[in-house]
Design a protein around this nucleic acid. Structure first.
Lengths: 139, 139
DNA sequence: CTAGCTGCAAAGACTTTGCAAAAGT
DNA sequence: ACTTTTGCAAAGTCTTTGCAGCTAG
């Protein structure tokens, strides 16, 4: 999860213990690409720390969400996934085959500022998804 | 679901039967505000057609997604909800209390065109969500 | 008529919780 | 030491499926 930094440090600062289970999960989040589901985090985490249990993955991710270090989101299936709670996430999702592309260039900063002002919101991140049919699927 | 039109017609054209259960669900979608979950669709639908079953709600929504008439999405809880598969959806979501605001003014059209060209995508809709802390929660 | 739909209930998948043992600080 | 955290297993919730009867076209 590229834009996450110092999860370890943040946990410690918040007064939580750094257990092997949590270290394994953090290592997965910091190493693997984004969009990880609980299942994927469990599988990858067990490669690092085989005793890791599913319940701990759920509990740890809940904790990280509470601390606003990651944010849950969903692609086109009903599986909860996680992204960094900071910055932008930009997806192009094919409604037909489910393929997902990421793009970087994003033009919502000004809009973000306007909304921030208008609604008194402190905006931490955004998600911009375009849905449609990819090249292969609309032919 | 304001931007949906003629769900009835689209179903018929696609060769599906117009049953009371489906009519009830469509009526709910066309009457109620957006962001409906299966549970809400069931409850509202049963006001129109009391025999409506949960399984049929799931099956009908799946059908509407397949036909690209609606699209599933999620707010900050793990409940699948639906929006029209056309046009844009713009949310401002508080990560702390979960409150959601909608805004209309949206500036991603040009970006949409660029991406469409660059990736060969036929873009049908977009979802733009800003996440952060609402006025009440960041004080 | 006849294929497609439905409601029910059971099965399956996913998520949460209670608890005793283990481990970080 | 002492409290938090863990893994296990059970409970709870949400979603899907099988099937016999019903119904729209």
């Amino acid at each position: 999860m590229s834009t996450i930094c110092n999860l370890t440090e943040r946990l410690r600062q918040a007064g939580y213990k750094l257990t092997p289970a949590r270290r394994a999960i953090i290592e997965v989040l910091e190493t693997e690409p984004e969009h990880l589901s609980h299942q994927q985090i469990l599988e990858e985490g067990q490669k690092v720390y085989p005793k890791l249990s599913r319940a701990t993955v759920y509990r740890t991710m809940e904790l990280l969400v509470e601390l606003q270090l990651v944010r849950p989101f969903y692609l086109n299936d009903p599986t909860q996934r996680f992204v960094s709670a900071l910055g932008g996430h930009h997806h192009l999702v094919c409604s037909s085959c489910g393929k997902t592309f990421e793009f970087e260039h994003c033009t919502v900063d000004q809009l973000s500022n306007e909304l921030s002002e208008k609604y008194g919101f402190q905006i931490l991140s955004h998600l911009l998804e375009f849905h449609g049919l990819c090249e292969g699927c609309h032919q």
